[in-house]
Computed example of a mutant assay.
Amino acid sequence: MNKLIPLHAGHFSCDGGALFSVIPKPLWSRVYPADENNVTRLTMRCLLVKQGDRNILIEAGVGNHYPEKVKQNNGHEQTDVLPQSLQEHGFSVEDITDVVFTHLHWDHCNGAVLEENGHLKLLFPNATHWCSQRQWEHVPEASVREQAAFYPEILNFLKTEGNLQLVEQEGELFPGFGVRFFDGHTPGQMIPFIESDGKTYVYMSDFIPTKAHIPLVWLASYDLYPVTAMEEKASFLKEVADNDYILFFEHDFYTECATVEWTSKGPKLKETFSF
């Protein structure tokens, strides 16, 4: 049986207009706060899936690879706390057997690699790392708009030193742990579907970054293909409502989990809660 343990990997921030794209601020600010500079607070919420001797970590945070200006611009807070968060639950970085990246943007995978005195090292030395083959092949072809989200030196280090495995097909990656691909945010975003205690938990990553993004047209400007993202979300959320899936939010600072119902006007937030 899969045991699920949320882990804290730090906070960051972004412009509210970027987070909600064409949605006017008077609408989105009612459900997701911003400060006087229009800055919204986000979090990095990893998920540890324990099944027997296997300890699977979903995502790894941002890491320590950035100059001070970058950290200030992105509102980095507590971005070195993932090992401590593991320790608080009785685990060490050496205990992690697998690290699953939903995609390879900096705030999802760079934390799996540390920089010490100009050299790179793995944070999880005993782990196999996983991402979709489609996302890996997309990285060198990324447009100027997306290139800054990828750090090739870190990704190549993961490939050569981190036993990075490329997932070609949707399906079960581990027992009770399946993955499916969604392309609206970035090609080959790999979303985990995890069975635990008779329920299905879906790790949302940037597919639906906060509960405020449940309405179909509420997309982030970071989505490369907004029409595709909206179509994927419509089909997915209908499935969520029909099957009582639980959404687990990686980036929502205020909400960990939610359920959804389907109405005559489309998807609607049903209930929010924490583990």
Rank of each mutant, 00 (worst) to 15 (best):
V31P: 01
Y32H: 09
Y32M: 09
A34F: 03
D35H: 05
E36P: 00
E36K: 14
V39A: 03
T40F: 00
T40N: 09
T40S: 14
R41L: 12
R41I: 10
R41T: 14
L42N: 15
L42V: 06
T43V: 15
T43E: 13
M44H: 07
M44C: 11
C46D: 05
L47W: 01
L48H: 09
V49E: 02
V49N: 04
K50C: 15
K50D: 06
K50V: 15
Q51L: 02
Q51F: 00
Q51E: 07
G52I: 09
G52D: 13
R54Y: 00
R54M: 06
I56P: 01
L57F: 08
L57A: 07
E59L: 05
A60W: 07
G61T: 05
G61F: 03
G61M: 09
G61R: 04
V62M: 13
V62E: 03
V62K: 11
G63D: 04
G63E: 06
G63R: 05
G63A: 06
H65S: 10
H65Q: 11
Y66D: 10
P67L: 10
P67H: 15
P67Y: 13
P67W: 12
P67G: 14
E68P: 02
E68M: 14
E68R: 12
E68I: 12
K69W: 03
K71H: 03
K71M: 15
Q72Y: 09
Q72C: 08
Q72F: 13
N73Q: 13
N74A: 12
N74F: 13
N74H: 09
G75I: 06
H76Y: 15
E77W: 05
Q78R: 12
V81T: 14
V81M: 08
V81P: 00
V81N: 01
V81D: 04
L82P: 06
L82R: 01
P83W: 06
P83D: 10
P83T: 11
Q84P: 00
Q84G: 09
Q84I: 03
S85M: 07
S85R: 00
L86W: 03
Q87M: 11
Q87S: 14
H89E: 14
H89S: 05
G90I: 02
G90C: 02
G90Q: 01
F91M: 02
F91D: 01
S92F: 03
S92D: 12
V93M: 04
V93Q: 12
E94I: 00
D95I: 00
D95K: 07
D95M: 00
I96A: 03
I96G: 01
I96L: 08
T97K: 00
D98Y: 03
D98M: 05
V99I: 11
V100G: 05
V100L: 14
F101W: 11
F101N: 11
H103Q: 12
H103M: 02
L104V: 06
L104R: 05
L104K: 07
